[in-house]
Design a binder for these strands. Structure first.
Lengths: 135, 135
DNA sequence: ATCCAGGTGGGGAGAAGTGGGGAATAGTGG
DNA sequence: CCACTATTCCCCACTTCTCCCCACCTGGAT
């Protein structure tokens, strides 16, 4: 399970350190893809396969073709380097409007990467709407 | 699993470099054929056989004859050269209207080759319809 | 104060993508 | 059957980018 929130940076080579707490779960292979909204999502390979299999269920062959052409090409299998970093494909970086300063959030079964300012705005809105923590 | 999207070129001899990430899976034999729409598809030999077996199911012998005459002659078994490139048969190249600039996309169980501009249009349309990523 | 772990930055070897020359092969016409 | 042409295939060369490694910096714990 991915929990917590971290401020990290993307360096000039497009690399971002994965929070140390998350590394263990991602060592066996990870997939980075477009997320819901202006962010990127990182899944373990296993979870990615489960998730994409679910989404394919019950689609007509025409819907399926478009869907697959949208999802799979935009994703990328990634590995961590010796320092626990991953390279964010430039296409995805552009999609999520990430420059140097990012926020990394653990969201149960996946990790999300946001532009830090965008993330802050988003969280501020959530708290106003949600009248405090449910705990 | 084939993931990701790459901008490659077809050179004057009709050769195209296969993205390095895909090569391992294609080394044991690959088939290139007309894809669904204005593109070409590349399957591993194994997946090609499975897929064509599925498609043959439940067809009358008449349908089958036409189907086979349409599919198999247009396809071609291809091998990678020492640099990891494959030669795109000129008939297929014409079919998919490929000139020099192409986009290569990994779509789960196969690879698709598109004219780059056509691919871009297609993706733009998909994103407008699909309100963002389901992930 | 020192050590250690996590995060950040950068240099250099090797791989990936692209282009082109030349030999072997196949197809064509005399 | 031979000669010529065209195509295919293999190899070499160049440029760019990726990946691996080492080094440093900072904050917290001992």
């Amino acid at each position: 399970m991915f929990l917590g929130q971290f401020d990290h940076t993307i360096d000039a080579k497009g690399r971002m350190a994965v929070p140390a707490r998350f590394r263990g779960q991602l060592e066996k292979g990870a997939v980075i893809s477009k997320g819901m909204g202006a962010c990127l999502s990182v899944y373990t390979m296993q979870r990615w396969e489960e998730k994409s299999a679910e989404l394919v269920e019950g689609k007509t062959s025409e819907e399926l073709r478009d869907f697959e052409r949208r999802i799979y090409p935009s994703a990328s299998e990634v590995e961590l380097d010796g320092q626990g970093r991953l390279v964010i494909p430039s296409r995805l970086r552009t999609f999520a409007r990430l420059d140097s300063e990012v926020a990394v959030a653990g969201v149960r079964d996946h990790i999300e990467i946001w532009d830090r300012a965008t993330w802050l705005d988003y969280q501020t809105n959530l708290e106003q709407e949600g009248n405090g923590s449910p705990f």
